[in-house]
Amino acid sequence: MLFLTLYLTGPRHLSVTTAGLVVGGTGVGLLLGSFTGGYWGDRFGHRPVLLLASTVGGLGTVAIPWAPTWTFAVGMPVLWYLGATQGVSTGALAALAVDRGDRRTSIAISRAASNAGFVIGPPLGALIILQSWTALFVVEGLMILAVRYLVAPFLPRENAYRVAHAAGAEPVGMLRALRADRALMRLLPAIVVVDLVYRQLYTTVPLHLRDSGQPVALYAALNAVGSGLILLLEVPVALRLRRLSSYSIIATGYALVGIGFALFGLPVSVASAVLAMVVLTSGEILYKTTATAHVLDAAPDHLVGQYQGLYTGAATSGTLLAGPVGTAVYAAAPALLWPLCGLAGLLAAATVLASRRLARA
């Protein structure tokens, strides 16, 4: 994902505009996979869906260097759809493996592993690219296949949908379950808003630092600070707070994310940028694990995959909106973006607290 635009505009000789359309197509595949991929796992079992998606996805990734360029318009979104479906089933299996109330800890462990991968992966990918672009995709695809075959013997086979049918009752559908949960329906828009704010870290923050005369090294250091804090603190914090109300923790996290981005509106220096990063990362540590677990805990067992996809899809929507919305505001009024981010974070926090009142009603 990190190197796709470079690959398309380099070895594949596409224009920047065309490459942008292809990358945009992968975002559509990712979004559709997040929202709909959970249905396949809930209906047919997360184990077979995960194994099928990872097998086809791994083979497709290996084939990228030899695929005709014209196939990318369809092939890339399909691969991203499979990747999102695989991710949703993985999250659902992890959620079903532990009891409600303990899912914050398991999600924190998963996120710590993911962040460790994001620390190791980019420099490793860059080293591979120095040798061969073809090797990048071959190694990536083979790794997907290797993990698929290594974990297959350990995956549970239970299908909650079929278990519910065997119990003699027709399982409640997704839409009916959501209509009955007004608190969750209030929370979902807040997830989109906060992720839109958070993803400014990867879109407008580097522009802001550059335009303020700061070197690229500062931006790289900020991301290292954030990843390091998550690796060190997310699991201990999840363990310490696992018995507290999820609404209060999520609302506090959303508020801290907003405040952290508002701090980028201060005169830019190393100290102010690091302070902003520490505050917003503190918010991320609080809300991401807790919000994911909260949505999964609200799901009936036979709908865990679709609820996992619902949360992932809401967050992915924020990711897709972050670039165009953030850059448009930054281009029109750079100084306005940061207080708007702060206000959005606080409004999202207030929405979470309002949804808590609905849950109690």
Rank of each mutant, 00 (worst) to 15 (best):
W70I: 13
L52K: 02
A146F: 13
A84I: 03
G57Y: 01
S132V: 09
A146I: 10
T71C: 11
A135M: 15
W80D: 11
I128R: 11
V78Q: 01
V119C: 03
P123M: 01
W80M: 15
T85S: 13
A113E: 01
V98A: 11
A84V: 06
L82T: 08
F118S: 14
V139G: 01
V98M: 10
G125S: 10
T71H: 07
A113K: 00
T69P: 06
V151D: 04
S89H: 05
T69A: 14
M143C: 13
G83T: 07
L93R: 09
I144F: 00
F137W: 13
W66I: 03
A146D: 12
A94Q: 09
A113S: 12
A84L: 05
L136A: 14
V62R: 06
T134M: 11
L145M: 09
T134P: 06
L96N: 13
A97I: 07
A73K: 02
A112D: 09
A152E: 13
L150F: 15
W133C: 06
G91D: 12
Y81P: 03
I64C: 07
G101F: 10
L145G: 03
V147S: 03
A135D: 10
W70P: 06
L59R: 06
P123W: 00
Y149S: 14
G60C: 02
S106G: 00
V56M: 07
G60L: 10
G75W: 12
R111I: 07
R104P: 02
V147K: 02
G87Q: 13
A113L: 10
V74L: 15
R111S: 12
G57D: 00
G117M: 03
V74C: 02
V56E: 05
A116W: 01
V138K: 08
P68Y: 08
V62N: 09
A113Y: 00
A116S: 13
I144M: 08
I64E: 04
L127V: 12
G101P: 10
G57V: 06
G83D: 08
Q131M: 10
S106R: 13
A146H: 09
A95N: 02
L142S: 13
V88T: 14
Y149T: 15
V138C: 07
W80P: 00
L96E: 12
L150M: 15
A67Q: 09
T55S: 14
Y81W: 14
L150H: 08
L93T: 11
P77A: 11
V74M: 04
I120K: 05
W70Q: 13
L130R: 14
G75P: 10
A84S: 15
L82Y: 10
A97L: 07
G117Y: 04
Y149I: 15
V151F: 08
V138Y: 08
T69K: 11
V56S: 00
T61F: 06
A126R: 10
V56Q: 03
G121M: 05
Y149W: 15
F137R: 06
A112M: 15
P65A: 13
D102G: 14
G83L: 10
Q86K: 00
T55F: 12
V88R: 01
L93Q: 12
T90F: 09
D102P: 00
